[in-house]
Measured scan of single mutants.
Amino acid sequence: MAAAAAAGAGPEMVRGQVFDVGPRYTNLSYIGEGAYGMVCSAYDNVNKVRVAIKKISPFEHQTYCQRTLREIKILLRFRHENIIGINDIIRAPTIEQMKDVYIVQDLMETDLYKLLKTQHLSNDHICYFLYQILRGLKYIHSANVLHRDLKPSNLLLNTTCDLKICDFGLARVADPDHDHTGFLTEYVATRWYRAPEIMLNSKGYTKSIDIWSVGCILAEMLSNRPIFPGKHYLDQLNHILGILGSPSQEDLNCIINLKARNYLLSLPHKNKVPWNRLFPNADSKALDLLDKMLTFNPHKRIEVEQALAHPYLEQYYDPSDEPIAEAPFKFDMELDDLPKEKLKELIFEETARFQPGYRS
């Protein structure tokens, strides 16, 4: 834990890192770190609560700039109880001085990944967590956004079992017609939660990839272990087919990539493993919904509104309290091709509203 900075004593240090967030945020305490930044909790002297502050230093890398800009653009436009918001952003007053960006968010005690390492969940908890994931996802999908990296560590939890989806750095506007060349190379989302079509096709992607990830998360809540822990690309596919069985001819016809289709045709026939054999203690309604989410063919996979209306979630289902976005989200430009200098300018502009004396 960093010592509390005395008023006016300059930035606090946390594990050798400068955290320049005073005077409003003090009493910093280390939480963890990701690929390009550290997260601390801090005391907000204005709202009198502890908050989470993520320090991001992305400006050396085009990919990190892209992810940072995506996350900020999306989260500043989203407003939903099951999606983490941005409360404040701290950065230098000029673009030349801006080396880091500090993002202030609600402090959540833990995440689903940490929880599943230590606790076996009751059916009631599984049901409530799944409902909140789908409630947040309904809003995301209504904005025409794909999260693309749903996994237990991106689901934040607090002691009252509130759940918030975080990390929109890989999110995209849904565009089933656009052929994202190089899709697989830039697709760094965790393999275990990846839909089979991501490994088999490169053309376009749809909201059904997020539903697949939610199915993987439900299976993990039922058993405290990942359902498809593939060691590499082909191993991942083999794990999936080992449980779902061989795809039907109709399902194979959806695979545009001939090499991928021929690979699947070359494999020995596998039978589907019954879900109640894998999860003998699970609620039968939970397994019915799991089956509809972990469907090989993305066109037959359940959609988020149908999933919310499934009998497993009937005690929570309330369409009048499951809000959607006001308007579909649009990125003005494809960020993939922009140089990091341009992305830095866009991050600077996007964060201006939090600067003292800002006038829109």
Score class of each variant (00 low, 15 high):
21 V>A: 10
176 P>A: 09
320 S>F: 08
225 R>G: 05
35 A>H: 03
186 E>Q: 04
247 P>Y: 02
231 K>R: 04
249 Q>P: 06
3 A>G: 01
65 C>Y: 13
213 S>G: 10
277 R>D: 12
332 D>Q: 08
119 Q>S: 02
135 R>S: 14
73 K>I: 15
48 K>H: 13
211 I>G: 12
267 L>E: 03
333 M>C: 03
66 Q>Y: 03
293 M>Y: 03
255 I>S: 09
115 L>S: 00
72 I>T: 02
164 K>S: 08
253 N>T: 07
13 M>C: 08
319 P>Q: 15
154 N>I: 15
59 F>I: 15
59 F>Y: 14
17 Q>L: 14
231 K>V: 01
153 S>V: 06
263 Y>H: 02
304 V>P: 06
3 A>S: 14
326 E>P: 00
13 M>N: 10
122 S>D: 04
114 K>F: 12
314 E>N: 00
30 Y>G: 01
203 K>H: 10
43 Y>D: 05
265 L>S: 04
263 Y>G: 03
179 D>P: 08
293 M>H: 08
64 Y>T: 08
297 N>R: 11
181 T>C: 10
315 Q>V: 00
229 P>T: 15
232 H>G: 00
283 D>Q: 02
325 A>T: 14
274 P>K: 06
260 A>N: 01
117 K>S: 04
359 R>E: 12
255 I>N: 14
227 I>F: 15
246 S>L: 02
231 K>E: 04
58 P>K: 01
59 F>Q: 09
322 E>F: 02
212 W>K: 07
196 P>A: 08
338 L>E: 08
181 T>H: 08
334 E>A: 00
95 I>G: 04
315 Q>R: 07
240 I>P: 04
261 R>M: 09
307 A>K: 01
227 I>H: 07
343 L>G: 10
333 M>P: 08
45 N>H: 05
252 L>N: 04
84 I>K: 03
192 W>A: 12
53 I>L: 04
212 W>E: 14
172 R>L: 15
263 Y>L: 14
224 N>C: 10
255 I>H: 06
36 Y>R: 02
23 P>A: 03
291 D>L: 12
286 A>E: 02
121 L>F: 11
256 I>V: 12
223 S>K: 13
349 E>L: 01
115 L>P: 03
313 L>V: 01
244 L>I: 03
90 I>N: 14
276 N>G: 09
127 C>I: 07
191 R>M: 09
221 M>T: 04
148 R>Q: 14
250 E>C: 05
193 Y>H: 12
108 M>T: 05
43 Y>T: 01
93 P>W: 02
116 L>I: 06
191 R>W: 02
326 E>K: 14
174 A>M: 04
333 M>K: 15
315 Q>A: 08
341 E>M: 03
44 D>Q: 07
14 V>F: 14
167 D>S: 02
201 N>C: 05
264 L>T: 05
303 E>M: 05
161 C>R: 09
289 L>V: 03
124 D>N: 15
211 I>F: 15
255 I>E: 08
320 S>H: 03
266 S>H: 03
347 I>L: 12
247 P>M: 03
22 G>T: 08
147 H>R: 12
143 A>M: 09
3 A>D: 12
106 D>T: 02
187 Y>S: 11
234 L>M: 15
8 G>E: 13
289 L>I: 07
125 H>R: 14
32 G>H: 03
93 P>H: 04
43 Y>W: 06
76 L>C: 03
240 I>A: 04
143 A>Q: 12
297 N>S: 12
285 K>P: 08
48 K>R: 13
329 F>P: 00
305 E>Q: 05
16 G>N: 03
48 K>F: 13
56 I>P: 08
280 P>D: 09
142 S>A: 04
61 H>Q: 13
127 C>Q: 10
131 Y>P: 01
236 Q>Y: 05
81 E>V: 13
5 A>H: 05
38 M>E: 12
175 D>E: 14
332 D>F: 01
197 E>S: 10
59 F>P: 02
326 E>C: 05
97 Q>S: 04
282 A>H: 01
23 P>L: 07
336 D>V: 14
150 L>S: 11
263 Y>C: 11
226 P>L: 11
146 L>F: 01
5 A>D: 07
179 D>E: 13
177 D>I: 10
33 E>P: 03
329 F>T: 01
313 L>S: 07
143 A>F: 08
